[in-house]
Design a protein around this nucleic acid. Structure first.
Lengths: 197, 197
DNA sequence: CGGCGTGTTCAATGCGGCGTGAACAAGTGG
DNA sequence: CCACTTGTTCACGCCGCATTGAACACGCCG
């Protein structure tokens, strides 16, 4: 028999919590992840005590297979932690999600912009060579430079964004963001003065 | 016969431009849109002169059907414009994409956060009622309040983000972002002082 | 008026991803 | 040592979505 580790869930409250999980799942799904990831994380974040995979599966009415995969993805991303050592040790959520967001921005988002930037540089070089040879190009070199500039701005902004640190106390979040925005603003003004062309 | 409206496209340059289109398409696809939208917009943005749908389709090697839909989606979003009046009038891209981004943020992104916020408020109220009745809740009211706080911060940030204006000259982009970041930082610090609870 | 080129719409198809059920592995407790 | 519970893995089926080809509508030019 399962030892009653957890405080029993209040049915009506649980129904409301599941709505929250769905909302967070829908939000995170729009960001290119899977809805189940957001739902599982939200449930673990709101539940008072750690939960086993079967508890999660039963709460959502989903199969254990899907939960198993989702939990391991979340663990790889550092969004949930195992509690204890045993085989069926329960899981809990990490509330500071910023390191994971920063990681995603650093890897996937950066590569997407970098790919665009590199291909733009190649296109500009080829177009300039053709233009110097007097050949008709058919594409607008000035606009290529504009887009290249935008990728550089996006990368600079991204670089600043991933330098944000999560404050210890949640109450400091607003001030932390405020300070960060101020620093980022100065950095951007400095960037403009430094690379004015 | 089609009148030679456009300067002939340089084959090698065009190959490079198509790589740029693919990169931008991959980028925008990760943001929840379709890759073809980014590809078509990028092609129209880099091409020196407006293009007809058939020219676009041939350039990408895609069917006319897909291009027709993509172009109309882009027109609805205000990202491309028709040039002239005729039936088969060509299309050109708008380079200032910020109004569209702001529109998307205002509608879809806002609603996603708002749904989470509302459901969180309902869950908190229900949990507090149950707690006052002395019933076991099983969920952490403090964490619910933390997440609610995060949604409020996200909405405040979003509100500031959509207030950004696109500068007339692209060279002013950096300075515009810098100024905006500074203003946003002050707004956040004020927000904290005003609603400290 | 009649071909021709272009844009639009829609049904069909092909493909990828998601969730499930079942089989297997691994502890745990009696 | 055996029964039971939980976690893991995988093949299958299902759904949705994107893309296509074809049929139709529309304007232009001869």
């Amino acid at each position: 028999m399962t030892t009653e580790r957890n405080e029993a869930a209040h049915p009506i409250v649980e129904a409301r919590v599941l709505e929250v999980c769905d909302a967070i799942g829908a939000f995170i799904e729009w960001w290119g992840f899977k809805a189940v990831h957001g739902r599982v994380w939200a449930l673990l974040a709101l539940r008072g005590a750690p939960m086993t995979q079967i508890e999660i599966a039963r709460t959502f009415g989903l199969s254990r297979a899907g939960i198993s995969g989702a939990v391991h993805d979340l663990e790889e991303w550092g969004l949930v932690d195992i509690v204890g050592e045993g085989r069926n040790a329960p899981w809990q959520a990490r509330l500071d999600v910023w390191p994971t967001i920063a990681k995603v921005l650093r890897s996937r988002e950066w590569m997407l912009i970098e790919a665009a930037r590199v291909s733009l540089e190649a296109a500009i070089e080829e177009a300039e060579l053709a233009h110097a040879r007097g050949e008709a190009v058919g594409y607008d070199i000035g606009r290529m430079r504009t887009l290249l500039r935008l990728t550089e701005v996006a990368q600079a902004l991204l670089r600043l964004l991933v330098s944000l640190r999560t404050p210890k106390r949640v109450e400091d979040t607003l001030e932390g963001i405020g300070d960060w925005l101020g620093r980022a603003g100065q950095a951007f003004r400095g960037l403009r003065n430094g690379r004015a062309d």
